[in-house]
């Protein structure tokens, strides 16, 4: 039978690296489109994205906030960067379960049997997760503004703060996807993801200043990547209050956070691509 559709074969595209890079990106966007279409099919998910930040802000801002005071700053202003970071870190769990589910359902097999770049399926998923996270972040910012959160620095620093948040999300995304590729099932991906997420999110400066913690715990929390992004955004937004950070990683939180995100990416992106190449779905 003569082929009715002439396909650009990978051999042809490989001859031109720029062209194959363009295709890899185009493929990733198609995969990302698939994830984003899900939001339309499952409006509950979108509703959850809207309701959850509101609950977080109200719960922590008013319920906990009445018990905590941070010198020199309204607690809710202090809190918001913590909630931003918490939400970004939480995508680790969503990314892991999403990947595990796609594996279980054979969708990863289907993608792997297509002549597309090996990175496209994962890059597509991470881009879609990032896009969702940005929507969530915008909603959180609106909530924050409504409860009195303000930035007190110049636009450049504010932009840098949000840039760091997105980069952190993107990095956690790859880690989550890798976890989703290793996990036995979507349920187990969810459980392992939560086990990693919980200490990252709560053993740190997310909700309270760290000065009250015992010394050894402070060392741990000072180097927690979530603490770094929280402290970095507090500094960049001007929400730190009167207390001065004394530990080196907290004094240079923006750089430390940038470093963390790049290290996480440098570790997990190659691991993901390698695993995707050799993965046995079962």
């Amino acid at each position: 039978m003569s082929q009715a559709i002439a396909l650009p074969t990978p051999a042809a595209t490989a001859a031109n690296p720029l062209r194959s890079l363009r295709w890899a990106l185009a493929d990733a966007l198609v995969v990302a489109g698939r994830h984003l279409t899900h939001l339309r099919s499952v409006p509950e998910k979108l509703a959850g994205m809207i309701v959850q930040p509101v609950i977080f802000v109200l719960l922590f801002g008013y319920v906990f906030g009445s018990a905590v005071t941070v010198p020199g700053v309204n607690y809710r202003e202090f809190l918001m960067p913590g909630i931003f970071a918490l939400t970004m870190a939480g995508t680790l769990v969503a990314a892991a379960t999403g990947m595990a589910e796609d594996r279980q359902k054979g969708i990863i097999d289907r993608l792997r049997s297509l002549p597309i770049a090996r990175s496209a399926a994962i890059l597509g998923a991470t881009l879609a997760n990032l896009a969702e996270a940005i929507v969530g972040l915008v909603l959180l910012v609106i909530c924050g503004l409504a409860v009195g959160w303000r930035t007190h620095t110049d636009p450049l620093r504010v932009a840098a703060g949000f840039g760091l948040l997105m980069l952190f999300q993107f990095a956690m995304n790859w880690a989550g996807i890798y976890l989703g590729m290793l996990a036995r099932s979507a349920d187990s991906a969810d459980q392992i993801g939560m086990t990693i997420f919980m200490p990252l999110a709560f053993v740190g400066n997310t909700f309270v200043p760290m000065q009250g913690l015992p010394g050894w715990l402070q060392t741990v929390t000072n180097w927690n990547p979530v603490s770094a992004i929280v402290q970095a955004t507090r500094q960049l937004f001007g929400n730190t209050g009167a207390m001065q950070a004394t530990a080196w990683p907290m004094q240079h939180a923006a750089w430390v956070s940038l470093g963390w995100s790049l290290v996480i990416l440098a570790i997990f992106a190659p691991l993901c691509v390698r695993r995707y190449r050799t993965m046995a779905t079962k």
């Binding site: 074969t9 490989a14 499952v42 359902k105 054979g106 289907r110 049997s113 002549p115």
Partner: peptide, 20 residues
């Protein structure tokens, strides 16, 4: 890669995206 451009696969479990 060349093989993938020439084959079709329907696996043991229907690999359809249920949310599309």
């Amino acid at each position: 890669d060349e093989v993938r451009a020439r084959i079709g696969l329907a696996g043991q479990y229907a690999a359809v995206d249920e949310l599309l």
